[in-house]
């Protein structure tokens, strides 16, 4: 079961404010392709504005992509999410649920927890009111909240508890795929771990697949099976978690890893910090999107955009860099 693909995204492109021919505007997602296996966690990492949240929202069809296919496979067969009307999508929505970054904003402050968790059930008219209530209570208990929580309002809960409510809410309709949009970045570090553990346990219990959007590599390292590194809406590297953290193939991945705070041996490490800013996504592109900030960039990088292809040194890793085969990025370059 585990290797069965549940989601297949091909050439996904989204421009905000594009004209009718699908050109112009802000290129948020650029020809992104990836697959997701059953019970797998794929993390999408990148800086702010790299389009990671946008990809998640495209899959949940909160945004309409301009091009590409999103194929979703479930017991009911294979469907292309990009070509479905709202009415056709409704049954599929049960199988794809979302977990939002800020549990404060994603829970309607005027609804009781019980109503919030039951909302997906109510929307899809699943079960009798009594069955719904039982389901809500059992899910709340599963995520570590008492049954008495149902009568409370979101503002009466802590951030961690609210995010648990968000998780319970997403799970009421027994989804196959959960899109987690930075689900722990608004939480305290101690609470983050609890929520991550809960997500991991639930994945095993319910056979969930996760798309995990995050900018926190520590969290990504903890929860992912595979990691996709995004820069300006373009995939830089797609690798298993272990490969990515042990031997990054792309200079940008290296830079992200270097930017990570480390606790190792209590030694202070001089960090190699990227200079410059993420380029404006509205600019006309030529060459590699990362070329402007890449320490290894050459004329070729400025001229021609690299395509995502298997890395010569480890074919399981895909990388979009002209010089990936030549560069050795496995050691931290700047250690004291």
């Amino acid at each position: 079961m585990r290797d069965e693909q549940i989601l297949d995204v091909t050439d996904l492109t989204l421009r905000f404010g594009a004209d009718k021919s699908g050109q112009g505007g802000l290129l948020a997602v650029n020809n992104v392709s990836f697959g997701l296996n059953r019970q797998e966690t794929l993390s999408i990492v990148g800086e702010s504005g790299s389009g990671k949240t946008t990809i998640g929202r495209c899959i949940a069809r909160l945004y309409e992509p301009n091009a590409g296919q999103i194929t979703f496979r479930s017991e009911g067969g294979e469907v292309d999410l990009t070509h479905m009307s709202k009415a056709e999508l409704r049954p599929i929505r049960q199988q794809i649920q979302m977990l939002f970054q800020d549990p404060n904003a994603s829970l309607n402050s005027r609804m009781r927890i019980g109503d919030l968790v039951a909302e997906p059930l109510n929307i899809h008219r699943i079960g009798t009111p009594a069955e719904r209530r039982d389901r809500v209570v059992s899910l709340l208990e599963r995520v570590g909240l008492g049954a008495d929580t149902v009568n409370r309002y979101p503002h009466q809960l802590s951030g961690g508890q609210r995010q648990r409510v968000g998780i319970a809410r997403a799970l009421t309709v027994s989804p196959r795929l959960l899109i987690c949009d930075e689900p722990v970045s608004a939480l305290d570090v101690s609470v983050q771990a609890q929520v991550l553990n809960l997500l991991r346990d639930l994945q095993d219990e319910m056979g969930l697949s996760y798309i995990f959007v995050s900018h926190d590599l520590g969290v990504v390292d903890y929860i992912s099976d595979r990691v996709m590194v995004l820069y300006l809406g373009t995939i830089m590297e797609l690798a298993t978690r272990d490969d990515l953290f042990a031997a990054p193939a792309h200079p940008y991945t290296r830079a992200l890893l270097d930017a990570m705070p480390s606790r190792r041996d209590g030694r202070h490490r001089k960090r190699k910090v990227l200079t410059g800013e993420i380029a404006g996504p509205t600019l006309k592109r030529q060459g590699c999107v990362f070329a402007g900030r890449c320490p290894h960039a050459t004329d070729l990088c400025q001229r021609e955009a690299p395509v995502l292809r298997p890395w010569a040194r480890n074919p399981a890793t895909s990388v979009a860099c002209h010089h990936a085969d030549a560069l050795d990025l496995s050691t931290e370059e700047t250690t004291i």
Binding site: L198, G218, F245, M260, R264
Partner: peptide, 28 residues
């Protein structure tokens, strides 16, 4: 490589989170 990653203590259990506060002002 996992051990180089810092801020994810994986051991804390969900039960460690504070129980729902019992103060009256929070129950309004």
């Amino acid at each position: 490589m996992t051990d180089t990653v810092s801020n994810t203590p994986a051991t804390a259990a969900p039960a460690a989170e504070a129980p729902l506060a019992e103060h009256n002002y929070q129950l309004l």
